[in-house]
Design a protein around this nucleic acid. Structure first.
Lengths: 247, 247
DNA sequence: CGGCCCATTTGGTCAAGACCAATCCGACCC
DNA sequence: GGGTCGGATTGGTCTTGACCAAATGGGCCG
């Protein structure tokens, strides 16, 4: 990464800058390596720091960079493929399960959730909070909403601790005959609560996955999952889901 | 939306601002309505224009707003659900097909694509370019890579026009026994070419879908699709994929 | 030695102002 | 009537400069 000056070009400076940096990342830096700090990079390219940051933000959005206040900007490893179609036996307690149940509360569901649950609207639900780990870091949070009426075996542990109670809900739900799933994926920004769990700043880009678990009687449960968009590639199906983005 | 002043808060101003604006959008604005311009909004909230823009960018990322230079900032309609699991008969020519084939070229595939195609690496492929329409606007672009050897019936129309040639490739591909698909979804930023087709600025956030079409002999084709992240909610399965994000 | 504290480093936030470029629309001319 | 030119409007880009907050690491103190 030399002391290349930007010329007057029809395209925005930050866009050109992003291209230059991207090529430099490919050829001159190793994963995990730390870049010069923003003030020095800006000076080296002859642009304002704000302009440089615009380029860095794009690269971070694409999962090429990782920035941490007080530490620096490092080259990010390739995105990790995360299967959103976990086979049934990978639910809590089973081997290979990457989800960690953290809490469970009995509450009135948000309106959107109540609507998705159909006839069960307005009735109390269990909200089970889970976190998904990959490579030692949290990559996703999830809230699973289960109508209380669907898991009748729960009455015995009404006041138990959150995590254990959540595992019990999932165990009961696992006993039901589930007829399939129904998913949607969209872009969102992390709420303060999710950002904290994912070790990100509020507003960080996340992939929001909405799942409906279907049963004979209708919708057995719905889940709202948020995956770190910078580090995750969501896969559907058996393979690892090769990325063609490098092309 | 009154002349509310921001107080000194522990959270960033743009974050608070985003919350205030978001609530105002829910209660005081209709879809399609145009907001006051950025300079006036900034003055009204007593912040710098850059700070206001940070809040607007977040809201645009979440699909709440739509901004167009020279026009203004308008309230965006809810995201449109787009099924990425099109049934087979919806391929070109069939009724209900939202894809429009635009061009087709015979070329050497990018390395990432060659790798995904396995044994066919290095061999020439057809690159079919398509655009997906929804509600009268382009919401996705796609490049489908098919090994030339897989569609032998093409020799007769080698020099034909792009779009017609592309449709022929798809028709031939459709004759093969396809064994299923394999998908991955990740966040990306629109390349200049895709941005132009999607009526967005370069770097706009997109959902990148990588699809492998499987056949008996291995991978029959791969597709790289980019969906407008601001306007699309990708759905998998039969239902419309209700969004719980409003909660 | 062990733990606390503080200066340094680094990215994050914010301000004020300038100019650029896409768009729109009315005035004008043919 | 219809096309064309030109300002006015609006979001997009860029600069300079300042301060804030998380993280680190070295040094001091018990």
């Amino acid at each position: 990464m030399g002391t290349t000056r930007l010329e007057t070009v029809p395209e925005p400076k930050y866009w050109h800058l992003k291209t230059v940096l991207s090529e430099a990342l490919d050829s001159e830096f190793a994963v995990g390596e730390i870049l010069p700090n923003e003030r020095e990079l800006a000076a080296r390219f002859g642009v304002a720091r704000a302009t440089l940051r615009q380029a860095l933000e794009q690269l971070e959005l694409e999962g090429r960079l990782q920035r941490r206040r007080g530490v620096g900007t490092t080259v990010a490893p390739p995105r990790v493929g995360v299967d959103v179609n976990p086979v049934r036996h990978s639910w809590p307690g089973a081997p290979g399960d990457a989800w960690q149940t953290e809490d469970c509360e009995e509450t009135a569901p948000p309106v959107a959730v109540a609507g998705a649950l159909g006839a069960e609207a307005g009735r109390p639900v269990y909200a089970v909070h889970r976190v998904r780990m990959a490579h030692g870091q949290a990559v996703a949070t999830e809230t699973l909403y289960v109508p209380a009426a669907s898991v009748p075996g729960m009455s015995g542990i009404g006041t138990e601790a959150g995590a254990a109670r959540g595992r019990a809900v999932l165990r009961e739900l696992n006993r039901l005959e589930l007829g399939g799933q129904d998913r949607a994926v969209e872009l969102g920004s992390a709420r303060a609560e999710d950002a904290r769990r994912l070790d990100r700043l509020p507003g960080a880009p996340v992939l929001v996955v909405t799942t409906r678990y279907l049963a004979a009687g209708g919708t057995a449960a719905v889940a709202l999952s948020t995956y770190r968009a910078d580090t995750c590639r969501l896969t559907f199906g058996d393979s690892a889901g090769v990325s063609l983005l490098a092309s």
